[in-house]
Design a protein around this nucleic acid. Sequence first.
DNA 1: TATTTGAATGACTATATGGTCACTGAGTAC
DNA 2: GTACTCAGTGACCATATAGTCATTCAAATA
Lengths: 197, 197
Amino acid sequence: MNKRQVQKQQTRNLILQQAKNCFISKGFLNTTTSEIAAECGIAHGTLFLHFNNKEILIIEILDQQLEIISLKIIELIREAYDLKEMLNNYLDFIQREEDFFHTITRELPFYSDELRRKIIFRESLIRKKFVKAIDEGIARGNFITCDSVMAATFLFSTISYYLSLKNIFVSEGSVIAKFKDKIILTFLSFLTRREDA
Amino acid sequence: MNKRQVQKQQTRNLILQQAKNCFISKGFLNTTTSEIAAECGIAHGTLFLHFNNKEILIIEILDQQLEIISLKIIELIREAYDLKEMLNNYLDFIQREEDFFHTITRELPFYSDELRRKIIFRESLIRKKFVKAIDEGIARGNFITCDSVMAATFLFSTISYYLSLKNIFVSEGSVIAKFKDKIILTFLSFLTRREDA
DNA sequence: TATTTGAATGACTATATGGTCACTGAGTAC
DNA sequence: GTACTCAGTGACCATATAGTCATTCAAATA
């Protein structure tokens, strides 16, 4: 690569980096291309030299982030030895990247079909692990018999609910931190079969 | 009321009526004031003669609708003799007004604080009825002991989830109709204590 | 009938924002 | 060293949309 190509690559990376920061803190919908350019210290027009339009930029960043994040999550889940620990690891991770998840969850209903499909696909991979864990619990007789897919939907919906309306529940700090224990406890009490009492 | 006052009132009502239709079918955020005016067959400026700004118009309509709807729901719930029937009545009603609920649920995270507070408040009244029903079930020994508020959150989150992402689950028709039975069945199986099997 | 009132008009403004393009100047190729 | 290339520029454009205001004309009033 000659000087020019290196420079171009650097600018491209700079845009991706700054855009990611903007998107995470303000959301995809509320970040303007001018803002991103300003944040990078480049001209507004330069941005469109590297990315034909805003949507393409968003998709590239989202793809990148989703890939990284979903792999990490699946890794964390795999390390767990039961549903409780899986949930713990999962929620811990979401908490660490809460701004990102807050943005995605809140804006999801407004994304283009393509963007939505990408997000839902990644989530479905993670969700499958939970469904499998529930199925195993049922097979072992530890959990009540129920529709495991629907059970997972109850779980993921609840997490999404807290994430998307985060501002209602906490003025600052993490919603997930605040409700993690209760979510886990309640969900497990839903599933767990008790003979006693 | 003289002719002028009558005319003014009629125009005002016309705006409220048409704006409501627009808002329900397209959402509050995606409906423009010009559209509403066009739909009413009045000049754009006339709208601001009756409502100082868009937000005020939205709030008035939302207040109206929420009041009507939440009273009806509470009525329907009261008629039910157990949680299952409550849920059935509740979901039937949501299904009938699904466009409205779809819009509200999807856009909620983007509303102003005031708008959000109004919606959440109404929902909380309905939610309380369910919490109470769960508490009674627990007291009677029919339901497992659990955090009833959290249990209700799982329920309402799941309903919101299907409503807000409706387009993913059905290309046309009602999401609620599609998932109603499964939601009820799963939620009840979560709560119900079983000694058998 | 003459004067005042006020509902309604619609052209206009202000602002935001995604995207374009003619131009510049440093880097590259010969 | 000269001609060419292309990353970068920033003024500009198109569009959307909430909100304003001077003007109009029918209704109310005296």
